[in-house]
Amino acid sequence: MDYVWDFGSVYEYRAALWVGLINTLRIFGICLFAGLSLGLAMGLARYSIRRWLRWPAACFIEFFRNTPVLVQIFWFYFAFPILAPFEISALMAAALGITLNSAAFSAEIFRGGIQSIDPGQWEAGRAIGMRYREIMARIILPQAVRRMMPALTNRGIEIFKMTTLASAIAYADLLHQARLIASVNFNPIEAYTVVALAFFVILYPIVRVTYVLERRMAKGD
């Protein structure tokens, strides 16, 4: 192959890529926060003693776990506005799809983490007069989150990578901007290489840090 690499043509459009990066980080932030919060709520509901909370949560989890995110995003972007009287932005549609999907997956992580805690911890909390809420917040979750760290980290990485699906409905994320640059300059190799590297450069250090954290937590156990 005698392909001549030309990253200069990508560098020229760095402002557009920068906008894409900011948008990627924005949708990631929203989905990470909303997805994990909703996931925790769903995990708790799924594990609740109240049946009327349990089964809707189970339906939610199974539905969003077993349908593709891209289909959900298309549905919110193209189908939802036909049923509802208002427009929905690309950011909102993509964030909704990714959030609901992540919530479904992380709900299972939270549920598993909570159930892995010795029932004696619940009893000890009850025996000193603590309420369900207090035991969950002060005794169970702090211990469960430690155990869930590896799984939650994976979830976070998945969410970050899933944000690229938003480009399919023309949300101006990093991938979308790169595609624009590639189509203007006819340099897809450079444009997509830069996007891949950008993702790697952001994610890899985070993964390293979580390895260290995990090892430290394992020691503290």
Binding site: D118, G120, A124, R126, A127, I128, G129, I139
Partner: peptide, 18 residues
């Protein structure tokens, strides 16, 4: 929760908060 504050319990397995 009221009664349990007045009736303390010690378990076989200790159940301390680790």
């Amino acid at each position: 929760t009221q009664v349990r504050q007045k009736v303390g319990m010690v378990f076989q397995q200790f159940n301390l908060f680790p």
